[in-house]
Amino acid sequence: MTQRLLRLVLPVLLFAALVWFWEWAVAYWQVKKFVLPPPSAILAVFQSDGASLLASAGATAKTTFAAFALAAVSGIALAALFASSRLAEAMLSPYAVILQVTPVVAIAPLVVIWVGLDNAWLAVLILAWIVAFFPVLANATAGLKAADPNLRDLFRLYRATPLQTFRRLLVPSSLPYLLAGLKTAGGLALIGAVVAEFAAASGTSGGLAWRILEAGNRLQIAKMFAALILLALMGVLIYAALTFLEWLLLRRWHGEVAR
């Protein structure tokens, strides 16, 4: 019990100490505000620009969530197709790999032109989706192949239909893999959204990345920090939510799921 309490209290204490040291050091060495603002200045930004920053965070969150949902649905659907047809897998998987290994920043200008400069949000969504899609596809594909071969034989022995085998054997066996893939994809969707906002470099998306660029151009470093903090919080939130989902779905049969 005290062990767990310590694990909770110590990071908080360390955080408080670091923030205090930061504030003190900036004042002591008279660091310029546009190099490193003190925590108090960042807090002030939250007070003055909090609402607009949160709106931007909302925009980025929306893109991230939509990209994640798209990646999840399309990744699972394609993996199911691969599992049911080797031909489809042989034909399509090279393209999935090419999409994955091509740096998203390099595709961005092309996508922006394709969807039109007025639709930068759509470009951002597509780019974030491309980034988040692959881990879902790869993990779901691996998961669908991970079923115990003896159990597969048993299903064959009892003349299970393909649908029965899929629902009762392949889907449950693949669940741990799929959830690991979704966890990775959740983080990547956020990264993809931010990178795409940078790359699309347009105010129409109005996301946090754009606010960081804007603040950087005006040397409002405290605002940059505020936006960064919001991004980090979003990342942590996504990870926590997906970890909770994993625990919820796997606790029954995976006693040892990491929390």
């Binding site: 159990l151 048993l154 299903f155 009892y158 003349r159 299970a160 029965q164 009762r168 054997l169 449950p172 669940l175 029954r252 049969w253 995976h254």
Partner: peptide, 17 residues
């Protein structure tokens, strides 16, 4: 099937039929 209770495991051949 690690995700299914003993009874669900035993019921499998019947349910598949």
């Amino acid at each position: 099937m690690a995700w299914a209770s003993a009874a669900r495991n035993v019921a499998l051949p019947l349910e598949l039929a």
